[in-house]
Design a protein around this nucleic acid. Structure first.
Lengths: 329, 329
DNA sequence: CTGAAAGCGCTTACAG
DNA sequence: CTGAAAGCGCTTACAG
């Protein structure tokens, strides 16, 4: 490997060393066309010998196609988002694409800036978990003949790009019904940012379950969608509704915070007050008590996204399964 | 904006619409050379009108330089790693580079595969939090005239690339000394994977603090570096060392697990047994009791990495500050 | 300050 | 199956 040379080694060098033409090298590299086994062998040997590294930028420029898929997420510091991002990355990589993960801090301006950069790379697809306040008009114009756009987790109203979501309503509805089946009459929904589409869907699921039940009282306390928000919302709930029997939380980390607050008040989660989370994080089964939660299938979301990319699907809403997991909380 | 055209719009089109030469457009785009205010104006107007998108691949190919910085992390699903990745991303982006985040699942093979792909993009820099079992020889040959390599968080023995680390030893030593100052005589270090360099450094810090203290007894229980590992290590510790007075944990999530286990055993963390974490995650101050921990400054790590990139530093170990934060645990 | 020309490292028809 | 040729969209000296 002579890496010392200032000049980068190109397919021209490989061809010369291998004793074949540039075309043959290119064909071997792409695994395309018909090349003799001998040619392949000589090319691979020459690559070893020269230390050649494929220049994907040149290839992309010439062929006007890219194998880069960008995964743009709104908040990588939340456990579920990180898990989903990693799952997507693994699935999309398995398809033979290169992935790039970008975080937007849930800021629409940052999102616009990073996506503008990504467009300069002519990415094959943009998989976006949209930031709060993402505009449909902006999202729609991201579609080009080269770049496919898919949104996940959060729906942007009036946008015409395909969207993959967990069935938020179904999951929460199922969980709330389980609470009703226990005979609970005083139920609260706590935590989460009321602007987000996933909040609206989860709250809908909660209300759907209560619909037509005349002897049930319900309350809603929202907050930021993190542990600290869960503590605050739980404390407001206890202060205003001391008779509350069960609490459906926007997500698991909110539930963690709620449980901590209950403990501090001398209440026993799962015994005095039932708590249900959403997302079923890996940690949740190990909590004390093990947290009842609604499982979201990250693999199914990732697979659905992969199908949309492969089929070049241009629209539609795709719901993935959610399942209520009853534990001791 | 005529986006309808099949052909992509190039600087040639922009030049034609603006009534200037291709060179001028290129210069305006790069903010280089001397272009008249009028020319700039005309170019920007033409860009609006044509819907031109800069083709960074073509630019990179011609100029043989890239503004892409890859951040390759070993486990994005751990909260500290995610936080650090996002902080790095923000700092490096602020420098004007584009960033790409890639996760390796702490698997050296995956790491080798994704970095081989990244090399095909001629990235400007690779910021790597190395997977377990990363070989120094492999790491060393990643350096090229175009690509700078920086490792973070974990040291690869015998490698000659620059490395940025929190001062693990100092932080743990300081925390352990605080325990000794309380008069504790039975101290354990729990959690973490004994193969990782950061584990060795933290354990060294622990042992350094105990060094020369003849009336102190200490124990070590390792485990996976997550919440569940913390529970298991804590339970082993209690079983074998019921007289333990304080526990230094490999990191905060291990401490969370340890606290949960103590609670289940009817012990009061912070009262019956002192617990100290490492990383000082945002959640830790809101735990009950608030978790004492060792703060790692992600911003300082990110800034140091940025300096190394800008100065094209080729070697050295750079330690960032750690600080013991005493709370009620 | 501008224009014409060369070339970055590939891919892609097209003859042979 | 191979070779010569054109061209992807830029940047970069170099004259003017």
């Amino acid at each position: 490997m002579d890496k010392n040379s200032k000049q980068s080694v190109t397919i021209h060098d490989v061809a010369r060393v291998a004793g074949v033409s540039k075309s043959t090298v290119s064909l071997v590299l792409q695994g395309k066309g018909k090349t003799s086994a001998l040619a392949k062998e000589k090319v691979h040997a020459a690559i070893q010998q020269t230390g050649y590294v494929y220049n994907r930028e040149a290839a992309a420029l010439r062929s006007k196609s890219s194998d880069l898929v960008a995964i743009v997420v709104n908040d990588l510091t939340t456990p579920y988002c990180a898990k989903l991002a990693v799952t997507l990355e693994n699935h999309i990589r398995a398809l033979g694409f290169m992935t790039t993960l970008v975080n937007t801090n849930d800021n629409a301006l940052t999102q616009a800036q990073v996506i503008a950069k990504l467009q300069e790379y002519r990415v094959r697809a943009l998989v976006i978990s949209p930031a709060i306040n993402t505009q449909a008009s902006w999202l729609n114009q991201l579609k080009t003949p080269h770049t496919q756009v898919v949104t996940i987790m959060r729906q942007v109203a009036n946008s015409n790009v395909p969207c993959v979501l967990p069935n938020n309503e179904h999951g929460i509805c199922q969980a709330t019904q389980a609470l009703l089946a226990k005979g609970h009459k005083h139920i609260a929904f706590i935590g989460g940012d009321a602007v987000a589409s996933e909040y609206i869907q989860r709250l809908n699921g909660f209300n759907n379950a209560l619909n037509g039940q005349h002897d049930i009282q319900s309350w809603v306390f929202n907050s930021s969608a993190n542990r600290h928000g869960g503590r605050i919302a739980m404390s407001q709930c206890l202060a205003q509704v001391p008779q509350v029997e069960s609490v459906v939380c926007f997500n698991d980390v909110v539930a963690y915070g709620a449980i901590e607050h209950l403990r501090e008040q001398g209440l026993r989660p799962g015994t005095d007050i039932s708590i249900i989370g959403f997302e079923d994080l890996d940690d949740s089964q190990f909590m004390n008590p093990p947290l009842s939660s609604i499982r979201v299938d990250a693999d199914e979301i990732a697979k659905t996204v992969c199908d949309l990319i492969l089929n070049n699907t241009q629209e539609g809403v795709f719901l993935t399964n959610t399942e209520f997991i009853q534990r001791q909380s």
